[in-house]
């Protein structure tokens, strides 16, 4: 069976408890073990660092879905002052899988559009695990056009397994609602920054990923299909999931090399959930720098560069094929 948590995560916790016990014991017995304890702690950190530097793509997938991983709402609360959430698509309803609103980032008004997964079972269910319905995408489209009207830059935060797979979603036009957002974003006359904070799942994630600059947190992933589904389609078995996670080239590092991601935002050792503030500060630095650059670019140039970037994605040959 595939594990949701890392074994070594638990092992570290156990080791840490042992060290604590040792500390306590040394106090109780009035026996100085400080040197040994320090050595042990250093050793443990070293193992941890080297492990996290070499995570496999599948381990990164797991980390990107870690139950403790910060959700977009936490980043929004940290990054923006006076954030006001806006609801509804004005057509059918409000989708809780998408947070949309306006807030102030270091004095600059930003529109924020984000997938909200929620934490804990109740919250997750309420937010549909971050899987938007067409209402969510239409809310996004509505606020994108509003951003354009008020010349307000857009920040997209991506964290979703994908668009919601359901009867209602299909009845209300899941496909066209996503397509319309893709088209709207391709030519939106304001700077757009997208950041993958956790899981970027397929078309449902891509709807927030058409932008001037796409960044990914170091342990986030972005994929055309989940590794599990890919393994089950190609091999009819899920044993190959880890292999497929590697083959799909879905990690931030892979996508930076492929030129899909424009940059990687560092995370603390062990993942964003171990030091939320440090992660959020790294995100803030990224937004600050890029917002500054993008807002000074002439709008025509910005749109041309965005278009050219999207238009040039793809590799093929044009010679007469051998087969």
């Amino acid at each position: 069976m595939l594990k949701k948590y890392f074994d070594y995560e638990n092992n570290y916790e156990k080791l840490q408890d042992k060290i604590k016990e040792l500390k306590k014991l040394s106090e109780q017995l009035d026996y100085n073990l400080d040197g040994e304890i320090e050595k042990l702690e250093r050793q443990m950190e070293n193992i941890r660092h080297s492990k996290y530097r070499n995570l496999s793509p599948w381990e990164k997938v797991l980390l990107s879905r870690h139950p403790e991983r910060p959700v977009v709402r936490e980043y929004i609360d940290f990054l923006l002052d006076d954030f006001i959430e806006f609801h509804g698509d004005r057509l059918y309803g409000d989708d809780k899988a998408v947070i949309a609103g306006v807030g102030s980032f270091e004095g600059h008004a930003l529109t924020v559009l984000a997938h909200q997964k929620g934490k804990g079972t109740n919250e997750k269910i309420a937010h549909h695990f971050g899987m938007p319905h067409p209402e969510g995408y239409r809310k996004v489209e509505r606020l994108l056009l509003q951003s354009e009207k008020f010349k307000r830059p857009v920040l997209n935060l991506i964290d979703t397994p994908g668009a919601f797979p359901g009867v209602g979603a299909e009845e209300r036009g899941q496909a066209s609602s996503i397509a319309r957002v893709l088209m709207t974003l391709s030519d939106l006359k304001v700077p757009v920054i997208s950041i993958v904070t956790g899981e970027g799942g397929s078309g449902g994630a891509l709807a927030l990923g058409v932008c001037d600059r796409l960044f990914m947190l170091a342990n986030s992933v972005f994929s055309v299909i989940s590794a599990e589904a890919c393994a089950s389609i190609i091999f009819k078995e899920t044993e190959k999931t880890q292999e497929m996670a590697a083959a799909l080239k879905l990690t931030a590092q892979d996508l930076f090399e492929l030129g899909i991601a424009d940059g990687i935002i560092p995370e603390p050792v062990g993942g964003a959930h171990l030091d939320f503030d440090a992660t959020a500060l790294n995100i803030a630095e990224c937004i600050r720098k890029n917002l500054q650059e993008l807002t000074t670019v002439d709008m025509n140039r910005l749109l041309t560069e965005r278009y050219n970037k999207i238009r040039s994605i793809g590799q093929y040959t044009e010679s007469i094929s051998n087969f």
């Binding site: 893709l182 994929s223 055309v224 799909l248 080239k249 879905l250 996508l255 492929l258 899909i260 793809g314």
Partner: peptide, 8 residues
């Protein structure tokens, strides 16, 4: 992979 998704 993602290159195909970006064709959308």
């Amino acid at each position: 992979g993602m290159i195909s998704l970006m064709q959308m």
